[in-house]
């Protein structure tokens, strides 16, 4: 399980048109701090998947989406609600801090 990979081409249907809020993890292989955040994002996907759809996008393979939303530092987590970015979390954080940042969406 964990976060589901998404690509530039599936972006609109998977993220913008989702009924639930979507948490997207922007990451890349060469990014050390991304490797710290990804397992936490996977845990959030497993534990809170009902309230929050959790996806990850590889910026190396999908640079268009990162550019469109002004992602210039990774890891960046964006929460989309109703097709728009609603929250931006930049940089690696621990699980407790992330859950606090996401509390609005976890009801």
């Amino acid at each position: 399980m964990g976060a589901t990979p998404v690509t530039d081409s599936a972006w609109t249907s998977e993220v913008l048109e989702s009924d639930r809020p979507v948490l997207v993890d922007f990451w890349a292989e060469w990014c050390g701090p991304c490797r710290l955040v990804s397992p936490i994002v996977d845990e959030i996907a497993n534990e809170h998947g009902e309230q929050l759809k959790v996806m990850k996008i590889n910026v190396d393979e999908n640079p268009g989406t990162a550019r469109e939303y002004g992602v210039m530092s990774i890891p960046t987590l964006l929460v989309f609600k109703g097709g728009r970015p609603d929250k931006r979390i930049v940089g690696a954080k621990g699980k407790a801090a992330l859950l606090k940042d996401l509390s609005d969406y976890l009801g």
Binding site: C31, G32, P33, C34, M72, S73, I74, R88, V90, G91
Partner: peptide, 12 residues
């Protein structure tokens, strides 16, 4: 921060 300001060249 994260919109052009960074402390990690290899990341960003």
């Amino acid at each position: 921060w994260g919109a052009g300001v960074s402390a990690c060249a290899t990341c960003d």
